[in-house]
């Protein structure tokens, strides 16, 4: 069977990511059949551009390369690297340009509900969703929520709204890897998934006292 050959440039790009890949080489979780050469060959021959999803998405940055061997990334030996990666991700965080943390929680709810954007069936130029409910419980009225991330019920009510708390939540949404190098959560701001205004709306969903997230609920049914 003939698979379309990929441009040599792509292969070169993957190999350039080599130094990052090599960091986990000491004790990879997989066997020798998946050494860097064999794995890179497989990737280059197995994927093709489709719509907005181009093969350059397979080229990893340092964070992705490090976290692609979760066993090695979680080992005590890697503590220093984890901290360095968190610091590098923290340095990417752009704080609100006008100093205001909160937008409109109603808009935030819509963004949290939407999972659209960035797949090969999505068109470029339309705003992306936040995918939040895929992994988090947020407003109590929405019972179709995922459990990969923690529940965010009562988020602001439990934490208050001082500067430090706001900053941490903003950093988490903007670049989740700034606080946990291999968090499962996407880096919504850093990767250009959500714009600043959208992040403000999500912040309002979490912190606005009028947001359903913070409304006092009765005993759990």
């Amino acid at each position: 069977m003939k698979h379309a050959m990929k441009p040599a440039a792509f292969l070169a790009a993957l190999l350039l990511a080599g130094p990052a890949l090599a960091q986990t080489k000491a004790a990879p979780s997989w066997g020798p059949g998946a050494d860097d050469a064999a794995f890179t060959r497989m990737l280059a021959a197995s994927f093709k551009d489709k719509g907005i999803a181009r093969i350059d998405r397979l080229t990893q940055d340092e964070t992705q390369a490090f976290c692609s061997d979760p066993e090695a990334a979680a080992s005590p030996n890697a503590a220093e690297t984890r901290q360095r990666i968190e610091a590098a991700n923290m340095a990417t965080v752009k704080w609100p340009s006008d100093g205001k943390w909160l937008g409109d929680w109603k808009e935030g709810e819509k963004i949290a509900q939407s999972g659209r954007g960035n797949t090969w069936t999505d068109k470029p130029g339309e705003p992306n969703g936040g995918n939040c409910y895929n992994c988090h419980q947020i407003s109590p009225a929405e019972i179709s929520y995922g459990t990969i991330g923690p529940s965010l019920l009562q988020y602001g009510a439990l934490r208050g709204g001082d500067e430090e708390t706001m900053k941490a939540a903003w950093a988490k949404i903007y670049n989740a890897k700034s606080l946990n190098a291999c968090s499962n959560m996407p880096r919504a701001g850093h990767m250009g998934i959500l714009a600043e205004t959208q992040i403000k709306h999500l912040m309002a969903l979490l912190f606005d006292p009028a947001s359903p997230v913070n409304v006092k609920t009765g005993p759990v049914k």
């Binding site: 997989w30 059949g33 998946a34 390369a65 692609s68 979760p70 499962n184 996407p186 998934i193």
Partner: peptide
């Protein structure tokens, strides 16, 4: 055996704008 190794590494391989691997979910 090599194919299994490659599959395991693929399962954990992160990429794209959301940093997702198979293992994320």
């Amino acid at each position: 055996q090599a194919m299994y190794d490659l599959g395991k590494r693929m399962f954990y391989y992160q990429g794209g704008p959301y940093d997702f691997s198979c293992a994320t979910c």
